[in-house]
Structures are given as structure tokens and as C-alpha cells.
Write a protein that binds this DNA or RNA. Structure first.
Lengths: 130, 130, 130, 130
DNA sequence: TTTT
DNA sequence: TTTT
């Protein structure tokens, strides 16, 4: 069992890429998740969690989310290792999202029509994926 | 919201340390969490997740767990940054445990007496903490 | 381990009561949580989950939330049994909240001033409790 | 979002049934989940949570689990209403499992062969489902 | 109706 | 008895 639930805001635009041979969509973003407590010396009060998602979910995320947007993410923790430029082994820990739920919608958003009624209004729209 | 649930096995003995000035106990271990799927090319089938715990929980973990033990962990994801030896900034992602539940007990364990039947057998013992 | 995470909307005002002798605050509400799928025959598309909370959290909830508000709840499932009016034994299953995070704020809300910008806007406000 | 994680023991054998027309497998069981705290007056220290599962998972559960077995369940809370015998409306709250992980294996178990190597040993075996 |  |  490996389950994660996060609610936080994107620190920047998601990055969308495609796997070289197979052309599968991958999106990366960082989620700023506020801590409930404050550091005794005013230190960092948020965790900045790297999130990755794949395929249809990657595209929905890349096409609909931007810096500052509030989302809920469910998924799991994935670890991997890779070779750094200096040849040393480095370890990566990130969250693989399998659901991303939009929890707000920009107030100044003008585009509130949307094709064929699909439109993530009021955070009550689930992302179709997989 | 920042919630994590893991079930897996310790890859080695937990490391117990104490904070310099204040002497607060900290334990670190890595949890091997099996994936449900297998890589198409026989790749890695487990995630190796760094876990940290504090105070009483750190001591209970260090005194009772060892390599191969099966546990359930609940907690949250914590990120931090630090200076690497070469001066570059590096990022760390780990799980801060706030509950660790023992789910097995070594079969070859001889010490199965304990006062008045109190003994963390069968994974039904909750770790008192905080 | 007994952990629950929900995101949904209140179906009505929370009910605030106090325990008879001790005067401890208790609040009850129902959370409508949309399902991701639709019934093949247009059946119910939401679960209506009973939630209870205690003490300070009960008061914050009762004083700040109303019908239609979007929240995230973390807690656990609690079961109990009781005597029905006809003397038969009945079983109750509900969620005991230990965190409630506000995820929206009513649009027509006039009270958006607050001292020095502190105001639970944008779902980024954590409920202090316990 | 509607997510549940439980670790507990079955209070009895699972019940396996099949839907009337379509013959889909359904299994029901109750999970006894110990509470971390004790009632001030020695009250109940466990929650008895109704769990339902479907199809392949229902069959695996019914064929492999019995009273007292320790499992981890992930799933969601589902509510429904029905007509009681006296005509009154009654509400049901239960957990729909989508993963069940075996965490122990009976000590006195003689049947440790199993067809084609499939055998839930050491709690490290995931239930294949869906 | 409750498990260890 | 159900929310948007």
C-alpha cells in the first residue's frame, strides 16, 4: 500500500513533455502544501512536493492548470535513482498522481463557456483519466 | 492536507540520533513498498521511501524494529533543501511518520514472554507517541 | 489504522449541541461527496456521509460553515450501536473529523475585510483545533 | 475525493453472494479496527466496519480470508438508503474495498502449497483484482 | 452479531 | 432529509 493525499497550490505552470519513442504525455509540477504549524524561528511553512502525471491526466493538467491554482491530488510515492552529471548516484522521490481535482477557478477567468459543456466549474468537476 | 499511508518492510536497521543541543531523538529508516505492477522490462518493483520520526516514536522504532520488519506508516511528506558538499543546492523529500504500526513479529523471536501478556505480537500493538 | 479523506459539500447547516453534564461541543453535518462515475440507470451520483466533530473544531465548523460549502475532511470511521424506539438494536457508522479545511468561500460574502488581510479566503486557511 | 484506509481483523467468515440476474460476485465482511485510545469507562475499543467488495476481489477474499485474519483495506465510503421491513426508510454506510492486502497467514495453516505458485505469503502478496 |  |  502506497497512498498519498495532498491539497495545495501549483508553484508554476505544469511542464508537458512526451516520451521519446512512444510519445506518451507526461506532466510535472510542484505543489506547495501549507503546513499546519509554524517553525519556531519563522522557517519555511510549506512543503514543495514534486508531482508527475501521465497520459490523459497529464494533458488535462497541462491544459487547465497554472501557477497558484488549488488542487487535490491522490496518488502514490515513487522513488527512482539516476546518474548525476558528476557521475554520482542521486535519488529522486516524487508523487505520481492518479487523480487531480480542481478546487478553484481563477476569478478573472473570461473563458467560461467551453466546448460541449465540459468545464471544470466550482471544483466539483472530476478529471477523467486513464 | 498532506497525508501518507504506507505498508512495507524496513530495508535495514533504523538509525537513531539525537539533536545536538536539545537531545531530541530522531530515527531514520527506509521502507521498501512493493508495487502492484511489474515493469514491462523487469525493472524495479518496489519504491524505497525515506522515513523519519521523532521523540518517543523514534525510540520505539529504533528499539523494536529491524531489517525486514513489516510496518504500516501514516504521516506526511516533508521537503527541505540543503547545501551539498560541492556547494550546490539539493532537495530532500521524505515521509515524517506520526504513527508506525507493527504488522509482524520475527518468527525466531525468543523473547515472547513479557510482563502480563503485554507484548507487541501480531501487529495489533499501537505505538504510543507524541 | 483507520483513516478517511473526503472532499464534498455540506447538505445543510451543521447542528451544534453540547453534551449534557460536561457541556462539550459536538457538531454534526452531512457531506455530499460526488462519485466519479454515473449509475448506468441514472442512479444516485453522490454519497451522503454523516460527519461528527468535537470541541473547538465543532464550534469553528458550526460558526463558519453552511449548506453548500466545499470542505476537505480528514478523520476516521467510528461505529456504535444504540437502541431504536421500537427496542431493536441499530448500528451507526459515521466519520469523526479531526481536520476540516475550508475550500471555498461564499461569493456573495460581504464580510471580506478582516484585520490585516487575515481572512480564510481561497481555501488556504486551516482550522485550528484540539 | 472519497478515500479510506483500514487495518483490522475480520470478525467472521466473509459472506459470498451473486447478483440475481447478472451473477456478479459480492462479498461482505466486518472489520474490527482497534482504537488507539481506551474509553474512560472501559467502553468499546474497536470499530466494527462493514466492508463490501465485488467481482474478482470478492472471490479472492471469500476463498482466502476467515475470522481473525489481519488485512489492510483501501477503498471509499458508500452510502445508500433502503426500505426496512416496517416500511421506514433506513440508511446504510459501508466501505467499498478496491484493494485488500493480506497481512498475516494463520500459524496452523497446513495448506502451504497452492496452485501455480500463487500464495499470499508473508503479507507481501497483493490481491489481483478488477 | 463482533477481531487479536 | 441531501450538496454544486
Amino acid at each position: 500500500m502506497n497512498k498519498v493525499f495532498l491539497i495545495g497550490r501549483l508553484t508554476r505552470e505544469p511542464e508537458l513533455r512526451f516520451t521519446p519513442g512512444t510519445g506518451i504525455a507526461v506532466a510535472n509540477f510542484t505543489l506547495a502544501v501549507d503546513r499546519n504549524y509554524v517553525g519556531q524561528d519563522g522557517q519555511k511553512q510549506a512543503d514543495f512536493i514534486p508531482v508527475i502525471c501521465w497520459r490523459k491526466l497529464a494533458e488535462v493538467v497541462a491544459n487547465n492548470l497554472g501557477k497558484g491554482r488549488l488542487v487535490a491530488v491522490s496518488g502514490s510515492i515513487q522513488t527512482s535513482s539516476y546518474q548525476a552529471q558528476d557521475g554520482s548516484k542521486r535519488y529522486k522521490v516524487e508523487v505520481v498522481a492518479d487523480e487531480v481535482k480542481f478546487l478553484d477557478w481563477p476569478k478573472d477567468n473570461k473563458d467560461d463557456g467551453g466546448v460541449d459543456g465540459f468545464y471544470p466549474v466550482d471544483g466539483d468537476e472530476d478529471i477523467p483519466f486513464r
